Measured scan of single mutants.
Amino acid sequence: MTEYKLVVVGAGGVGKSALTIQLIQNHFVDEYDPTIEDSYRKQVVIDGETCLLDILDTAGQEEYSAMRDQYMRTGEGFLCVFAINNTKSFEDIHHYREQIKRVKDSEDVPMVLVGNKCDLPSRTVDTKQAQDLARSYGIPFIETSAKTRQGVDDAFYTLVREIRKHKEKMSKDGKKKKKKSKTKCVIM
Score class of each variant (00 low, 15 high):
residue 2 T to C: 10
residue 2 T to G: 11
residue 2 T to S: 12
residue 2 T to R: 12
residue 4 Y to M: 15
residue 5 K to A: 06
residue 6 L to H: 02
residue 6 L to V: 12
residue 6 L to K: 02
residue 6 L to R: 00
residue 8 V to Y: 01
residue 8 V to Q: 03
residue 8 V to F: 03
residue 9 V to Y: 01
residue 10 G to V: 09
residue 10 G to D: 03
residue 11 A to W: 09
residue 11 A to H: 10
residue 11 A to R: 09
residue 12 G to D: 12
residue 13 G to H: 14
residue 13 G to D: 13
residue 13 G to F: 13
residue 13 G to A: 11
residue 13 G to N: 12
residue 14 V to Y: 13
residue 14 V to H: 15
residue 15 G to C: 01
residue 15 G to F: 02
residue 16 K to N: 04
residue 16 K to E: 04
residue 16 K to G: 04
residue 16 K to I: 00
residue 16 K to C: 06
residue 17 S to R: 00
residue 17 S to T: 09
residue 17 S to G: 01
residue 18 A to N: 14
residue 18 A to L: 00
residue 19 L to M: 14
residue 19 L to D: 14
residue 20 T to R: 00
residue 20 T to N: 07
residue 21 I to A: 15
residue 21 I to G: 15
residue 23 L to T: 14
residue 23 L to E: 14
residue 23 L to W: 12
residue 23 L to Y: 11
residue 25 Q to S: 13
residue 25 Q to A: 11
residue 25 Q to T: 13
residue 25 Q to I: 15
residue 26 N to K: 11
residue 26 N to Y: 07
residue 26 N to L: 04
residue 27 H to K: 09
residue 28 F to C: 03
residue 28 F to N: 01
residue 30 D to Q: 12
residue 30 D to G: 09
residue 30 D to L: 12
residue 30 D to C: 09
residue 30 D to R: 11
residue 31 E to W: 11
residue 31 E to N: 05
residue 32 Y to H: 10
residue 32 Y to N: 02
residue 32 Y to G: 01
residue 34 P to R: 01
residue 36 I to D: 03
residue 36 I to E: 01
residue 36 I to F: 03
residue 37 E to G: 00
residue 37 E to F: 00
residue 37 E to S: 00
residue 38 D to C: 02
residue 39 S to H: 01
residue 39 S to W: 01
residue 39 S to N: 07
residue 39 S to L: 13
residue 40 Y to C: 00
residue 40 Y to A: 00
residue 40 Y to R: 01
residue 40 Y to N: 00
residue 40 Y to S: 00
residue 40 Y to K: 00
residue 41 R to S: 11
residue 41 R to G: 10
residue 42 K to V: 09
residue 42 K to T: 10
residue 44 V to N: 14
residue 44 V to T: 12
residue 44 V to A: 12
residue 44 V to E: 11
residue 45 V to R: 11
residue 45 V to W: 08
residue 45 V to E: 13
residue 45 V to Y: 07
residue 45 V to M: 14
residue 46 I to Q: 15
residue 47 D to W: 04
residue 47 D to Y: 05
residue 48 G to M: 07
residue 48 G to F: 05
residue 48 G to Y: 08
residue 49 E to Q: 12
residue 49 E to I: 06
residue 50 T to D: 09
residue 50 T to H: 12
residue 51 C to V: 13
residue 51 C to H: 12
residue 52 L to T: 12
residue 52 L to F: 12
residue 53 L to P: 07
residue 54 D to L: 02
residue 55 I to H: 04
residue 55 I to C: 07
residue 55 I to Y: 01
residue 56 L to N: 01
residue 56 L to S: 01
residue 56 L to T: 10
residue 56 L to Q: 01
residue 57 D to V: 00
residue 57 D to N: 00
residue 58 T to C: 02
residue 59 A to F: 00
residue 59 A to H: 00
residue 59 A to C: 03
residue 59 A to R: 00
residue 60 G to S: 01
residue 61 Q to M: 07
residue 61 Q to F: 02
residue 63 E to R: 05
residue 64 Y to G: 00
residue 65 S to R: 07
residue 65 S to Q: 07
residue 67 M to N: 00
residue 67 M to K: 01
residue 68 R to K: 03
residue 69 D to M: 02
residue 69 D to F: 02
residue 70 Q to T: 09
residue 70 Q to F: 02
residue 70 Q to W: 13
residue 70 Q to G: 04
residue 70 Q to E: 15
residue 71 Y to Q: 00
residue 71 Y to E: 00
residue 71 Y to I: 00
residue 72 M to C: 03
residue 73 R to P: 04
residue 73 R to M: 13
residue 73 R to Y: 08
residue 74 T to D: 15
residue 74 T to N: 08
residue 74 T to R: 02
residue 74 T to K: 01
residue 74 T to I: 08
residue 75 G to P: 02
residue 75 G to Y: 06
residue 76 E to I: 08
residue 76 E to W: 08
residue 77 G to H: 02
residue 77 G to W: 03
residue 77 G to F: 05
residue 77 G to P: 03
residue 78 F to H: 01
residue 79 L to E: 01
residue 80 C to N: 03
residue 81 V to K: 15
residue 82 F to C: 14
residue 82 F to V: 15
residue 83 A to G: 13
residue 84 I to W: 14
residue 84 I to N: 15
residue 84 I to R: 11
residue 84 I to D: 15
residue 85 N to Y: 06
residue 86 N to P: 11
residue 86 N to C: 11
residue 87 T to C: 05
residue 87 T to A: 14
residue 87 T to F: 15
residue 88 K to C: 07
residue 88 K to R: 12
residue 88 K to G: 08
residue 88 K to Q: 10
residue 88 K to F: 15
residue 89 S to A: 14
residue 89 S to W: 10
residue 90 F to I: 13
residue 91 E to S: 14
residue 91 E to M: 13
residue 91 E to D: 08
residue 92 D to G: 05
residue 92 D to C: 04
residue 94 H to G: 14
residue 95 H to V: 10
residue 95 H to K: 09
residue 96 Y to R: 05
residue 96 Y to E: 02
residue 96 Y to D: 01
residue 97 R to P: 02
residue 97 R to Y: 14
residue 97 R to A: 11
residue 98 E to G: 04
residue 98 E to Q: 08
residue 98 E to K: 03
residue 98 E to T: 04
residue 99 Q to I: 03
residue 99 Q to S: 04
residue 100 I to A: 04
residue 101 K to R: 09
residue 102 R to P: 02
residue 104 K to N: 15
residue 104 K to R: 13
residue 104 K to L: 05
residue 105 D to M: 15
residue 105 D to Y: 06
residue 105 D to W: 04
residue 106 S to E: 08
residue 106 S to Y: 13
residue 106 S to W: 09
residue 107 E to S: 11
residue 107 E to V: 10
residue 108 D to Q: 13
residue 108 D to E: 08
residue 110 P to Y: 01
residue 110 P to N: 04
residue 110 P to E: 01
residue 110 P to K: 03
residue 111 M to C: 05
residue 111 M to W: 03
residue 111 M to T: 03
residue 112 V to G: 01
residue 112 V to T: 05
residue 112 V to R: 01
residue 113 L to N: 06
residue 114 V to P: 02
residue 115 G to A: 13
residue 115 G to N: 04
residue 116 N to P: 04
residue 116 N to E: 15
residue 117 K to G: 13
residue 117 K to Y: 14
residue 118 C to M: 12
residue 119 D to N: 13
residue 120 L to M: 11
residue 120 L to V: 12
residue 120 L to S: 11
residue 121 P to I: 08
residue 122 S to Y: 12
residue 122 S to W: 06
residue 122 S to R: 06
residue 123 R to Y: 10
residue 124 T to V: 08
residue 124 T to Y: 08
residue 124 T to R: 07
residue 125 V to N: 11
residue 126 D to E: 07
residue 127 T to I: 13
residue 127 T to S: 09
residue 128 K to N: 06
residue 128 K to C: 07
residue 129 Q to R: 09
residue 129 Q to F: 15
residue 129 Q to E: 10
residue 130 A to R: 14
residue 130 A to V: 11
residue 131 Q to A: 07
residue 131 Q to D: 06
residue 131 Q to R: 10
residue 132 D to V: 05
residue 132 D to A: 05
residue 134 A to C: 07
residue 136 S to Q: 13
residue 136 S to A: 13
residue 137 Y to P: 12
residue 137 Y to V: 13
residue 137 Y to E: 10
residue 137 Y to S: 13
residue 139 I to S: 05
residue 141 F to A: 03
residue 141 F to D: 11
residue 141 F to Y: 15
residue 141 F to H: 05
residue 141 F to I: 15
residue 142 I to K: 04
residue 142 I to R: 12
residue 142 I to P: 02
residue 143 E to I: 04
residue 144 T to F: 09
residue 146 A to G: 13
residue 146 A to Y: 01
residue 149 R to W: 15
residue 149 R to Q: 14
residue 150 Q to M: 08
residue 150 Q to W: 05
residue 150 Q to F: 07
residue 152 V to Y: 13
residue 153 D to S: 07
residue 154 D to C: 05
residue 154 D to P: 07
residue 154 D to H: 05
residue 155 A to H: 12
residue 157 Y to W: 06
residue 157 Y to N: 09
residue 157 Y to D: 08
residue 157 Y to K: 12
residue 158 T to F: 12
residue 159 L to C: 05
residue 159 L to D: 01
residue 159 L to Q: 02
residue 159 L to Y: 12
residue 160 V to I: 07
residue 160 V to L: 11
residue 161 R to H: 09
residue 161 R to Y: 04
residue 162 E to P: 04
residue 163 I to M: 08
residue 163 I to A: 04
residue 164 R to Q: 15
residue 164 R to D: 15
residue 164 R to E: 14
residue 165 K to D: 11
residue 165 K to L: 12
residue 165 K to T: 15
residue 166 H to C: 08
residue 166 H to Y: 06
residue 166 H to L: 08
residue 166 H to R: 09
residue 167 K to S: 08
residue 167 K to R: 06
residue 167 K to Q: 08
residue 167 K to M: 10
residue 168 E to M: 13
residue 168 E to S: 11
residue 169 K to F: 13
residue 170 M to R: 14
residue 170 M to N: 15
residue 173 D to K: 13
residue 174 G to A: 07
residue 174 G to N: 07
residue 174 G to S: 06
residue 175 K to V: 05
residue 176 K to H: 04
residue 176 K to P: 15
residue 177 K to R: 08
residue 177 K to N: 05
residue 177 K to L: 04
residue 178 K to D: 14
residue 178 K to Y: 10
residue 178 K to M: 07
residue 179 K to N: 04
residue 180 K to W: 10
residue 181 S to W: 07
residue 183 T to N: 11
residue 183 T to P: 15
residue 183 T to F: 05
residue 184 K to P: 09
residue 184 K to L: 03
residue 184 K to A: 05
residue 184 K to W: 04
residue 184 K to T: 05
residue 185 C to T: 08
residue 185 C to V: 15
residue 185 C to W: 06
residue 187 I to A: 15
residue 187 I to W: 10
residue 188 M to W: 07
residue 188 M to Y: 09
